[in-house]
């Protein structure tokens, strides 16, 4: 905003022929520019509907708000911040990475990691005593013959199926 005022002031100082309205008209943001930002925001009243595809009248007005803010020269971050200040964190596609919300991001990887550790530990445990039992496990020794290439394995199964 401050930057925009500065530019405006500069224009006046230079005695530029542009008036503010002309300035706005030359820079009417296109629908695509509006949608690019609206796509990343969520409708503050409807549940989980991105703003760019939300068909309600209210959302049309919010899209117009984005357009007018763009026309004023606001950046995407400024527009996003305005929406968050006005309507809360729910307008963002995901909550900001701060405070309690960190939990939302950190818990799944933590659980997945835990699952992976448990899995690999049990795998290790299961594979360890193989020397003790290998002599008795006929099926395994049958399959683990050195020249265990695909075709011979398959033919073996074929024989069994007959």
């Amino acid at each position: 905003m401050r930057k925009f005022l500065f530019i405006l002031a500069l224009l006046f100082l230079l005695g530029s022929p542009f008036t503010t309205t002309a300035f706005a008209q030359n820079n009417v943001p296109t629908d695509d520019e509006v949608n690019a930002i609206a796509h990343k925001l969520y409708c503050p009243v409807c549940e989980s509907t991105p703003l760019d595809v939300c068909p309600t009248q209210a959302c049309k007005e919010w899209r117009e708000l984005i357009r007018s803010m763009l026309a004023e020269g606001k950046t995407e971050e400024e527009i996003t911040r305005h929406f968050v200040d006005q309507y809360g964190a729910r307008v963002l596609a995901e909550p900001p990475k701060e405070g309690f919300f960190w939990l939302i991001y950190l818990l799944p990887p933590a659980i997945i990691l835990l699952g992976a550790v448990v899995l690999f530990r049990s795998l290790k445990e299961w594979t360890k005593p193989k020397t003790a039992s290998s002599a008795l496990d006929g099926n395994r020794s049958e399959l683990s013959v050195k020249k265990d290439d695909y075709v011979s394995r398959f033919e073996e199964e074929l024989k069994k199926q007959k």
């Binding site: 969520y42 989980s48 991105p50 809360g88 964190a89 729910r90 307008v91 963002l92 596609a93 995901e94 909550p95 405070g99 309690f100 919300f101 939990l103 939302i104 818990l107 799944p108 659980i111």
Partner: peptide, 21 residues
């Protein structure tokens, strides 16, 4: 977690959040 955590967020921060694509 994506489905349940907005409940947790509302409980602990009193803020609704969206978890989108």
């Amino acid at each position: 977690w994506g489905v349940v955590s907005p409940l947790a967020s509302e409980l602990f921060t009193n803020q609704k959040v969206t978890l989108g694509p």
